[in-house]
Amino acid sequence: MKNWIQAFSVIDFISVGILLAAVAMNALRRIESCVRAYTLNSWLLSLLIGIVAFMIGETHLYIAAAVTLLSKGIAIPVFLRRIVRQMKITHDVEPYISNALSLTISGILVAVVYASLKEGIFVAGFSKNVLQISVAVILIGLFIMITRRKAVIQVIGLLFMENGLFLAGFSLTFGMPTIIELGILFDMLMGVIILGMFIIQIRRAFASADLDKLTVLKG
């Protein structure tokens, strides 16, 4: 099994899948599909952690994989879907820029990350591509946040950034101590829940969840 994983470079394939799920965000038109892309991304992340746990035989990594699956893969997507359903608004993403341009810029981001991290940190761990991929996912998440006007999509962009961050942390540290990982996840979960509450408040106060309406405070 271990030889098989190495021979087919499964880890690289999964991390590329994580990157592709993030890139796909640029082309998706409906909020529901974005939530689905995020779910896929989280499942792949948890699968990756699980496989590495199997490769190096670390128990606490299995726990990390399970916790990731439960929180990022199940709890948060279910919560997001509930919010989207509660909003009862148009379900289009409505980006500020066209999808083609958005995809192009994401592509450029990935290239820049690869070029700039080529010589810097060498991760001696399981795959030297994972760090680049994770930084690329973080930047794409940030880019999505900047260019979309729906509040829910901003939250999803933030979640993509955090997935990228987890991947980076994982590739650099081979998993933090479980208690710390749980702390970070808990913080994140609370953050998402509170953002969800605010989305509903925004919708009530401004009769829309477009962030265009949030322009009273300036200067």
Partner: peptide, 29 residues
Amino acid sequence: MAIEAAWKYIILCTVGITFALLGIFITYY
């Protein structure tokens, strides 16, 4: 207006602090 302020606050600070965690991971490395 308070919702707007809170929204901006939590989004900007969470994004910012995400990078700080990356820095901490790099330190660990």
